[in-house]
């Protein structure tokens, strides 16, 4: 089995994300996740560039890599042209691919996200759509959202939307064949295999039922 480091280096987002870090802390200073969580992108860059296999494994098993919010504010600022946000993408991919993600609380949440957002893509052609935003689990959407969902097609069509209807426009139902094409792309490019890796982790955790 190839070392974690060499697997990481195979991901183009690793080479685009980290060449050499000078530990200046600019990325951490601008990072909204560092402002909220116990998270420090600079520290992750430093840890990865030391190249220690055990450190890397701990990182992939830990909570920290899941804190990044992917705003990529760090990309605009790093004086060395690094992109900690890309490095995070590569680390998260490897964590899921290698199964290490099930050792962290945040990592395990990928199972739920995959079954929700991932599946939505192949079922509807959209990452999100109104009916996924259930008021019970989205109290922050406020009474206006409860109302909007109750009105459904009446409201959306008044605003020019197709609201799950056949034909053109916003929120239209996907035309025949479109979802098959998407699925074929996922199959061909490793998207489905990647999901299997996530499900293998779930199985290991006996988390077959919706967690």
């Amino acid at each position: 089995m190839a070392s974690l480091l060499s697997q990481l280096k195979d991901d183009i987002r690793f080479s685009e994300g980290l060449s050499a870090c000078m530990n200046c802390g600019i990325c951490t200073a601008v990072c909204p996740a560092a402002a909220y969580f116990d998270y420090d992108p600079r520290r992750i860059c430093q840890l990865v560039q030391t190249g220690d296999e055990q450190d890397l494994e701990n990182l992939l098993k830990g909570e920290e890599i899941w804190m990044c919010g992917q705003c990529l504010s760090c990309k605009a600022r790093c004086p060395r042209g690094n992109v900690p946000g890309y490095l995070i993408q590569a680390l998260r991919k490897l964590s899921q691919q290698s199964g290490h993600f099930i050792h962290s609380r945040e990592g395990r949440k990928q199972i739920r996200l995959k079954r929700r957002i991932g599946h939505s893509i192949l079922e509807t052609g959209y990452c999100v759509h109104p009916q996924m935003v259930e008021p019970e689990t989205h109290p922050e959407q406020g009474p206006v959202w409860v109302w909007a969902l109750e009105q459904g097609a009446d409201l959306y069509r008044r605003c020019g939307s197709n609201y799950y209807g056949e034909g053109e426009g916003g929120l239209r139902k996907m035309a025949p064949g479109v979802l098959d094409e998407l699925e074929a792309i996922f199959e061909e490019t490793g998207g489905l295999r990647f999901w299997e890796a996530i499900e293998r982790g779930a199985e290991e955790l006996k988390l077959n039922t919706e967690p």
Partner: peptide, 20 residues
Amino acid sequence: RRHTTCTGIAYHCDLVPLET
């Protein structure tokens, strides 16, 4: 009408490989 999501949200949730 045949265009779909770009899968960007799922990508930034790390659910979709780069090649996909």
